[in-house]
């Protein structure tokens, strides 16, 4: 049961943290609950669909079907997050400035967090499909512990995953409103770079690029990727103990693009006396 719980927890952690951070970042945004709920719900539905079609997808593209799906999902997530970091953030920045001045909580008006909702849905889709597939396989197998114990493990793993997501949400909710935007925004920028690094890895696994599996360094002795802090840092910041050159280029490139674009579109530049 605990082995099952651990696998399900590992799969759900990344998506749960992602959704928790996004939920904190969009506090006070009109329609946030509806949009994020929709994103997560669609992600779960998609995960079930993807898992049910797994055998068919696996056979596509000469056995690379899943990798192609993975590349597509990560690319769309990356675009959504880039869009949010570059354009969506500007709106929030202004709102945060107003909040600072007025000492009130951030009200971002009618700006619906569609891009973030889609990114949440895709995070759930990615991690969820594997979880569903694992669960389907387990309930259909002659597992020693029996189905009841397995299902208990699934529920336990999932609950702990969701609890960690809730923990980061409530943790972030304690950040003072005038600083909340900056903090969550920084977290989302780093998550975006992490997705870019995952995309680099997915492209290599799909055989679309030949980046070489030779890692640039190996820090697993220093911070093991399967240790709790390593896994957490992987989910939050894309920590990789053995990154390839392409992953690093994608990671740093994404950070640079966001920083450059934010400077370019910074409200201070097109400064107005927004009352």
């Amino acid at each position: 049961m605990f082995a099952t719980a651990l696998i399900v927890f590992r799969e759900s952690l990344e998506a749960a943290l992602f959704v928790g951070i996004v939920a904190a970042a969009t506090r006070g945004v009109a329609g946030r609950g509806r949009w994020l709920g929709l994103g997560v719900g669609a992600g779960i539905a998609g995960a079930v669909g993807l898992a049910l079609a797994a055998e068919r997808i696996a056979a596509l593209a000469d056995g690379l079907g899943q990798d192609m799906v993975n590349v597509a999902v990560l690319s769309i997530a990356l675009l959504m997050l880039l869009w949010h970091c570059i354009w969506g953030a500007r709106h929030g920045q202004e709102a945060a400035r107003d909040a600072r001045r007025l000492g009130s909580s951030v009200r971002q008006g009618q700006h619906a967090p569609v891009a973030l909702a889609v990114a949440c849905g895709l995070a759930v889709l990615r991690e969820g499909a594997e979880t569903v597939l694992f669960v389907i396989g387990m309930t259909g197998s002659d597992s020693a512990g029996g189905i009841a114990a397995s299902l208990a493990g699934v529920l336990l793993g999932l609950s702990i995953g969701v609890a960690v997501g809730a923990l980061i949400y409530f943790g972030l909710s304690r950040v003072p409103p005038q600083r909340l935007f900056g903090v969550t925004q920084a977290l989302i920028v780093v998550l975006t770079a992490a997705i870019a690094s995952q995309l680099a890895r997915a492209l290599a696994q799909a055989g679309l690029v030949q980046s070489g599996a030779t890692p640039l360094w190996d820090s697993s002795a220093w911070l093991a990727p399967d240790s709790a802090p390593g896994a957490l840092l992987h989910a939050l910041a894309g920590y990789d103990a053995q990154p390839t050159a392409l992953q690093l280029v994608f990671y740093v490139g994404t950070l640079l693009i966001i920083v450059a674009a934010q400077r370019h579109t910074s409200p201070q530049r097109a400064t107005t006396a927004a009352a």
Binding site: A54, E55, A58, A59, G63, G65, Q66, D67, Q205, Q242
Partner: peptide, 14 residues
């Protein structure tokens, strides 16, 4: 080897 891939029942993947 930085590799992680689900292989569904009965499937043949690359």
């Amino acid at each position: 080897m930085k590799s992680e891939k689900v292989v569904p029942a009965g499937a043949k993947v690359t």
